[in-house]
């Protein structure tokens, strides 16, 4: 304590002007540096995020090699490069000949520990799910994290019928096209994934149907 007092000895009657100047100078400088760092790293960060999303879309929609971001506005699905913060976004995937294959839908909901965010591919023609990828989760290591670490569980979502609704059943008891095998010991995480997809389906299926129909007519 003594030495810091020594430093400022003789400056005891500092006016508040000096304090304000120091702080605002520091703030200004700091702001400048932060903006600089932000601007110089932004392109890399956005490019990486886009790449991760693209890879996930290609993974859940097999046979797709071009994707388009669609935004739901005013009851319409429209391609859009600009995305506002509250926009609801899905992705449409096209194969090599440019034909629409299906949609990649993102969903989120509570898991066992924290929010699970996932992406799944959906084909309107056959009303089937073609794949599921967990984007973010904090499930228990060794148990709940099998929702993305266990290939057998992920394979459940390959050509999975969504009618009337996806159901998780005990491992080995899968008998219908709309059922998946739950992970032994991680029933809650398995059911959370199913619930997230069912909820996203309720939100998106009608919208997609409406979007596909006019295209089919024209």
């Amino acid at each position: 304590m003594s030495s810091s007092q020594n430093i400022n000895v003789g400056k005891r009657d500092l006016g508040s002007a000096k304090l304000v100047t120091t702080l605002s100078f520091a703030g200004l400088l700091s702001g400048l540096i932060i903006v600089l760092a932000y601007e110089s790293t932004l392109p890399t960060i956005t490019a990486h995020k886009a790449m991760v999303m693209k890879e996930a879309v290609f993974k859940v929609l097999p046979g797709v090699n071009r994707m388009q971001r669609l935004v739901y506005r005013n009851g319409m699905l429209a391609a859009s490069e600009q995305v506002r913060k509250d926009d609801e976004v899905i992705f449409s995937g096209y194969d090599a000949s440019g034909r629409l294959v299906g949609y990649a839908i993102a969903g989120a909901g509570p898991g066992f520990q924290d929010t699970i965010r996932l992406l799944y591919g959906y084909i309107p023609e056959t009303r089937e799910i073609t794949g599921m990828e967990i984007l973010e989760s904090r499930e228990t290591p060794g148990l709940g994290d099998k929702i993305y670490k266990d290939p057998a569980f992920v394979a459940n979502f390959d050509s999975l019928s969504i009618d009337p609704e996806i159901r998780a059943v005990k491992k080995g008891k899968r008998s219908a096209a709309n059922e998946i095998d739950a992970i032994t010991g991680a029933t809650i995480s398995s059911k959370a994934v199913v619930r997230i997809i069912n909820e996203a389906n309720r939100l998106w299926l009608l919208r997609i149907e409406q979007a596909v129909k006019p295209e089919g007519k024209g």
Partner: peptide, 27 residues
Amino acid sequence: IPKQVRISTYIIIIATFVTVTDFTLEA
């Protein structure tokens, strides 16, 4: 750095470095 505002100044300095680190790591 005046004694009265030293802690706030330190925090500004530290926060600047942290934010730069944050962006750099993310990139």
